[in-house]
Simulated assay, not measured.
Amino acid sequence: MTDIIPTPDLPSLPIEDDARRFPVRRIFCIGRNYADHAKEMGAAAEAIFFMKPSDAVTTASRVPYPQASSDLHHEVELVLALGDGGAIMGCAVGVDLTRRDLQGAMKAKGGPWEIGKSFENSAPVGLLRFGPVPERGAISLKVNGVRRQSGDLSEMILPPRRVLSELARYFTLKPGDLVFTGTPAGVGPLQRDDQVKAEIAGLPPLEFTIS
């Protein structure tokens, strides 16, 4: 029996010092995992989960400004890459791009966040580094050379392994899953031609331009 349409391609991430790539199955995200960010958003410091589709991942150097929005925001995050049994294989720097105006409209209605979070190219991710996950170290983001976000991984309400433990209560974590672990304070708007540089101590930086 054959498929009625061509099998969709899985997006994948490049791996540092490895010719192979990491295919992306699902993307889990955690919101409000840094108290200062929750405060700036006017929300309780209580971690919550949501998801993005795998095709939200992009490694492009130019990321298009999304349709249907006039208020695109940046959120720098530590990203976990999972292998067999949901174990952490490695990690990378990522940015959760958010159509804040659409997210805000959904919040006001008590509706889901997908329209603000789960669009194409909304999850830029840098080079994946295999090895242990850092639980402390500087995390920051600059726009056009000006620092917008800064914090430390140790400020997470739920550190990486606690994030996975909570997720595992609701989902069977599988190889190819990515987990965005939350963002520190300082999120803000992006415009076309803005140059973004996201960094986490000890990991390859992520750089891209909004086009």
Rank of each mutant, 00 (worst) to 15 (best):
K52S: 15
K52Q: 13
K52H: 13
K52T: 13
S54R: 15
D55Q: 12
D55N: 15
A56K: 04
V57F: 11
A60L: 15
A60K: 15
S61R: 15
S61H: 13
S61E: 15
R62D: 13
R62N: 14
R62H: 15
V63D: 12
V63M: 06
P64T: 04
P64F: 07
Y65N: 06
P66G: 03
Q67V: 06
S70I: 07
S70C: 13
S70M: 05
D71T: 12
D71W: 05
H73N: 09
H74F: 15
H74M: 10
E75F: 05
V76S: 04
V76T: 09
V76A: 03
E77W: 06
L80E: 08
L82C: 07
D84Q: 14
D84K: 15
G85T: 02
G85C: 04
A87S: 14
A87L: 11
A87C: 01
I88F: 10
M89A: 14
G90Q: 11
G90E: 11
G90A: 07
V93L: 01
G94I: 06
L97M: 11
T98D: 09
T98H: 12
T98R: 12
R99L: 10
R99T: 07
R100K: 14
R100L: 10
R100P: 11
D101H: 06
D101G: 03
D101Y: 07
L102K: 14
L102V: 14
Q103K: 00
G104A: 14
G104D: 10
G104F: 10
G104W: 09
G104H: 14
A105E: 13
K107A: 12
K107N: 09
A108I: 02
K109M: 03
G111N: 06
P112G: 02
P112C: 04
W113C: 04
G116H: 01
E120F: 04
E120D: 08
A123V: 05
V125N: 07
G126P: 13
L127K: 02
R129E: 08
F130S: 08
F130C: 10
F130N: 09
F130H: 14
F130G: 04
G131R: 08
G131Q: 05
G131D: 05
P132F: 00
P134I: 00
P134F: 00
E135C: 02
R136N: 05
R136T: 05
R136E: 09
R136Y: 01
G137M: 00
G137L: 00
G137D: 01
G137F: 00
A138Y: 00
I139H: 01
S140C: 01
S140I: 01
S140H: 02
